[in-house]
Design a protein around this nucleic acid. Structure first.
Lengths: 332, 332
DNA sequence: CTGAAAGCGCTAACAA
DNA sequence: TTGTTAGCGCTTTCAG
């Protein structure tokens, strides 16, 4: 920056101001400085800027993985919103493990983010403590946590479970199974199961059998493999609610191998509305929600939280619910 | 850090040293300092550390998207390797556009990364200039760029095209189409097409028809829709090589709608070996490569480059090729 | 509208 | 093994 200042014949301070939109610099001076910056290929050092101003312009997001489409889509929506506000998104991997999430969070906090976004669920006690100490807005997304750290933007997973069961009931199914893609502690799967149970109770059905497993990493394989257990536990099953479309695809493949036809013998419903569902045979009935807009909503919550802090307003936790909708096709 | 120093009864410098593995601090002092750090919940500020030491401990990676599994898998492999070396991965989105890549790169460079990883292909002239000015190792991955910025870790896409055509030839197919998921300027699709053309020429076949489109964002829908054009351009097609498994799934669905059976009338080969392929009906024949290990290899290249700089060795560009293999199933 | 001084929190280099 | 001094590149604050 000193170089730029010297060449432009101004002080470093003026260069710094020329770089910000709002600062008071004459049009002519700014133009000259920007030209020099372009000539020299100067790129400001944000570490220095952050240290000096106390504003890192960083928002951290920690997701279980970016191998499945959903978290990538959320990140993209969030990134788009933040970029407009001059903030950068810093992504971290939790690998579906609380301990890894804690590590990723600590690594993130070293960069002094102005907000933290992480997937709702359980966190280690140390992670909760770090979040509290960080004294920046925290948003948990996708599923509503038991003890929310701060703001929540969650998909209405209970409604997803309910909608799925209602669809199955309308199709004359009576013996239901709910498959969670993660272990029994996973809150998303539990929420969906609760919704399903409620709807089943309303209809006067026998309680759906809940099946959980470590299918987050390879959902399709998981779905295919769990069919054996499902048929053993509930031989008369005629309706299956799956934790995501991948699991559903696997379940359909598994059922086929076991000689059961979909949807004739068993109806299968997915979750997530992945584009593949439309092109399968049978086309997949699923529960959809808008993942990029979930990210956008998280971004909006963050921006309002910043605004509230700036205005000195009291900050009250947001509780946003993202709606779901049934995408009725052939598998159920 | 001053707080920690005061409580522990040492200087800030000793606290700083206690935090690093190699530094010379007595066992007792380190233990005491670390205890105080834990008590106070102190998390060091890396922006300050970076400014002072000139080492940001950041490696930036810019990928077209993290909505498809591949880039997420590469990022995960890279992250694992870097984390072991005490480096953090900073992810950026290019949204499949050179201009967005340039923006993401500039934003990244403001954080002074110690290396830059980006997907091979074309970059804007300004991006190339910024990369040169940054004077840090640059790795381009997945596909080999026309004018490499520095190191390259590329999948052997020509071999992928060749293997696909050989498989089709072995199955008695003679009239081939190659579908690229991105536009005609996309280097990955071109490389695959070159390999396919070579193999077709060797077999004495008519040159495969190459079809390109903007299918990177929604490959399955793209594959489904391009079938019409494909049948118009090459009515006698009996073998299709697709840019990725998504496109292949779409093509199979599209062919079915047009009344063509797979593999009886037309054989279809995908690319990427996504887990879904195994469970489709017909199961998808595809060309696989190990995406996480591609990320790991990128990480290794980076670490050797750092090592070379440290040792003062001459740095010569790496050219790593990641092998591909045919995963023979039913669709071809 | 522009400049000068001070300092953000840490670490390199040197001293003890 | 530990401490002191200086300064990384920027922005805040205060002067002009």
């Amino acid at each position: 920056m000193a170089d730029v200042a010297k060449v432009a014949g101004v002080s470093a301070m003026t260069v710094s101001r020329a770089l910000r939109e709002d600062a008071s610099v004459s049009k002519a001076t700014r133009a000259r400085v920007l030209e020099v910056i372009d000539d020299l290929g100067y790129v400001p050092d944000q570490a220095a800027g952050a240290l000096s101003s106390g504003r890192s312009k960083l928002v951290g997001m920690i997701a279980p993985s970016f191998t499945s489409a959903m978290y990538g889509a959320v990140a993209r929506g969030l990134d788009a919103t933040l970029t407009k506000a001059g903030l950068q998104l810093f992504l971290g991997f939790a690998d579906f493990q609380e301990e890894r999430e804690e590590q990723a969070l600590e690594a993130l906090l070293r960069r002094r983010p102005e907000a933290v976004v992480l997937s709702g669920g359980r966190h280690t006690p140390k992670a909760m403590r770090m979040l509290a100490n960080a004294s920046v807005p925290v948003v948990e997304f996708f599923c509503a946590p038991v003890s929310p750290a701060h703001h929540v933007v969650a998909v209405d997973l209970r409604a997803a479970g309910r909608l799925a069961v209602e669809r199955l009931a309308a199709g004359g199914r009576r013996s239901l199974v709910v498959i969670g893609e993660s272990d029994g502690l996973d809150i998303a799967a539990q929420e969906r199961a609760i919704g399903a149970r409620e709807a089943a109770a309303e209809k006067g059905f026998r309680e759906p059998t809940a099946l959980y497993g470590a299918g987050a990493v390879a959902p399709i394989d998981f779905g295919a493999h769990i069919v054996g257990e499902m048929l053993a536990r509930r031989p008369d099953v005629d309706g299956v609610v799956c934790g995501n479309d991948g699991v559903a695809i696997g379940v359909i493949a598994g059922l086929r191998r076991h000689g059961r036809r979909v949807p004739d013998d068993v109806a299968v419903i997915g979750f997530g509305d992945h584009e593949v569902g439309r092109h399968l045979d049978p086309a997949l009935t699923t529960i959809g929600f808008n993942a990029p807009s979930l990210g956008v909503e998280v971004g909006k919550v963050l921006l309002s939280a910043f605004e509230a802090v700036r205005a000195g307003d009291e900050i009250k936790p947001y509780r946003l619910s993202i709606g779901v909708e049934l995408v009725g096709r052939d598998s159920a």
